[in-house]
Design a protein around this nucleic acid. Sequence first.
DNA 1: AAGGCCGTGTGACCTAGGTCACAGAACCGG
DNA 2: CCGGTTCTGTGACCTAGGTCACACGGCCTT
Lengths: 220, 220
Amino acid sequence: MPYFASLPLNELRHLAERCTVRRLGRGEALFEEGEPCRGLLVIADGRVEVRQISLRGREQVFHTDGPGAALGEGPLFDGGGYIASAVALAPTQALFVPRAEVLQLCQRRPAVALAMLRTLARRVRHFAAIVSDLAFRPVAERLARHLEAAVARPIKRGAGIELTLTQAQLAARLGTVRELVARAFSQLEERGVISRERSRVIIRDPARLTALARGDEDAW
Amino acid sequence: MPYFASLPLNELRHLAERCTVRRLGRGEALFEEGEPCRGLLVIADGRVEVRQISLRGREQVFHTDGPGAALGEGPLFDGGGYIASAVALAPTQALFVPRAEVLQLCQRRPAVALAMLRTLARRVRHFAAIVSDLAFRPVAERLARHLEAAVARPIKRGAGIELTLTQAQLAARLGTVRELVARAFSQLEERGVISRERSRVIIRDPARLTALARGDEDAW
DNA sequence: AAGGCCGTGTGACCTAGGTCACAGAACCGG
DNA sequence: CCGGTTCTGTGACCTAGGTCACACGGCCTT
């Protein structure tokens, strides 16, 4: 766990004494948007999706995190309520570290504070990327970006991606609806950028894929 | 300046020796998206707009900051390039603090690290709000939100807002185009939520304004 | 094997958002 | 006070994105 990796044994022991464990089944919520934040949650095992739901019922996924990640640094440090809801995608165990404990630790151990600054910084970057996707890119390009990010580097012709998400889940990540994801897939396929068989996507034209992911509209 | 408010005089002196000053005229860039980040910028005076521009030429403003604010914490801590470009809206002076200096300070003075955690946390919250605006809200509601945020609390009938931005600038903040902002204004006016005279907006129906800002579509 | 429940593909439609063009108002510098 | 630039309002369009409905194919359970 990156935040606490730098700590000596006695600190860790101290910390462990003050943590509690929470176990969640698939679909259960770790916290809900708006709820006050009493501490930091560290995922020990499983997978959690952080997302908002609009009054109209649309869902926007902000990020998903697995073992080692922490959730809720935002509200922890600015004192507000949770920004979004977190639900388990699979059976999950999470450690709860009380707020005061985290704050003291940041005082006492600068390395911890720096580690948190780093992840918060990454989160800012990630959010900025979502904003520019939503503001600037058509959904087919967002899909291209997603595929490009999912494929192993270096990207070469014929490389395959195993889809782990349903189209509905993908849609919530891309900020759109299921049907448009289906059409975007067809579009990429028609133009020869990818091909598909069952839940596997094959990259046919890596150069064009990266161009589209960059937002280069000439690549169509 | 909140980050360094806690520092004793000798630390401040030490810091001051290592800072450099940058002066910018209106429209000049403090940094550009993608550029590597060598330190923290603290606005001493003026006003700076942080934004991205798409290949198609659309602009999305992430935030604007005035005296006392710092820019570039994101790239500073995660080591990447600048996430967006920053341009001066007015003649501006900014202090440049070299990266190593900031990092050492965070190690030495936990209060500095905590202050930065707080502002980074706020930034995350702010970005999340932009994402949900773009993903969920029609532009008239985004405008309602903007007005609601700009008016003095408690919001009462007849309260006035002096518009400091042109509609084009507003559009870039709301993630849309000038014409739609103009129409959104007319829409709010027709429905009796606001009225306008020159660059002044008067709140006619505060309850409805907040309802719209919340995204309650029944309020139309 | 049959029935159910996903997940997927697609056609028909609707609507918000965006583009283009232009006219009038406000504003500014000489 | 004039001539320009900048800002604003609006009508006519176009298009991406979103909704609805429905059919098809798996896959799991009974």
